[in-house]
Amino acid sequence: MHEYSLACEIFETVIATAHDNKALAVNSIKLEIGRLTHVNPDQLLFCLGVLSKDSIAKGAKIDVNFVSPFGECECGYRGDAGVSDNDRCEDQPHLYEYAVLTCPVCGKLLQLVGGDELMVRTIDIEI
């Protein structure tokens, strides 16, 4: 379960940032997760809850925003890769659905850019 190791890294980042800013509590955390990471958000949130239960981040609201990759083509097209955004894990497209995306301009295969990130976007703290 790689979600646990990811949760540990996120938790360490959040706690270090909170301590650096002399926070009394962490109110909320916003994460951006690329669809190509195939991170299970339910497992990640569970792990973060377990890690934070005895810390200043206990009870912090965690928002997850999924980021889809975009397509680039040698013809110059750069835009939507054509896969819809859904917030639920089971609704995430499988990798093969991205593998055969074609350019809407010339019909060649698109090269995917992005969608593999996992970032702590914001941390709301109480001082």
Rank of each mutant, 00 (worst) to 15 (best):
E3C: 07
A7S: 02
A7D: 02
C8F: 01
C8D: 03
E9D: 03
I10K: 01
I10P: 03
F11Q: 09
F11K: 01
E12P: 00
T13P: 00
V14W: 02
V14D: 02
V14T: 01
I15Q: 05
A16M: 06
A16R: 10
H19M: 05
H19K: 08
N21C: 06
K22C: 05
A23E: 08
L24I: 07
L24C: 11
N27Q: 14
N27T: 11
K30A: 13
K30T: 13
E32F: 10
I33H: 09
I33S: 15
R35D: 11
L36S: 07
T37D: 00
H38T: 14
V39Q: 06
V39K: 03
N40M: 12
L44T: 06
L44N: 09
L45H: 05
L45G: 10
L45Y: 08
L45S: 06
F46I: 05
G49E: 11
V50R: 04
L51A: 11
S52F: 03
S52A: 15
D54Y: 01
S55G: 05
S55Y: 01
A57Y: 02
A57N: 03
A57C: 10
K58C: 09
A60M: 03
A60R: 02
K61M: 09
K61Y: 05
I62W: 05
I62H: 05
D63P: 10
V64F: 03
V67F: 00
S68M: 15
S68I: 07
S68D: 13
F70P: 04
F70C: 09
G71W: 05
G71M: 10
E72G: 08
C73P: 07
E74R: 12
G76D: 12
Y77D: 14
Y77T: 12
Y77I: 14
R78W: 02
G79R: 07
G79T: 10
G82H: 08
G82D: 13
D87S: 03
D87M: 01
R88Y: 04
E90M: 15
D91A: 11
D91T: 09
Q92N: 01
P93I: 04
L95D: 09
L95H: 05
Y96M: 00
Y98A: 06
Y98P: 01
A99P: 02
V100K: 12
V100H: 14
P104S: 06
P104D: 08
P104K: 02
V105D: 10
V105L: 03
C106H: 06
C106A: 13
G107F: 02
G107H: 04
K108C: 13
K108L: 06
K108F: 05
L110D: 06
Q111I: 06
L112K: 12
V113H: 12
V113R: 14
G114H: 08
G114C: 08
G114A: 12
G115H: 11
D116V: 10
E117D: 13
L118G: 08
L118N: 07
L118Q: 07
M119N: 04
M119G: 00
R121D: 15
I123N: 03
D124V: 15
D124Y: 07
D124R: 12
I125V: 15
E126P: 08
I127G: 01
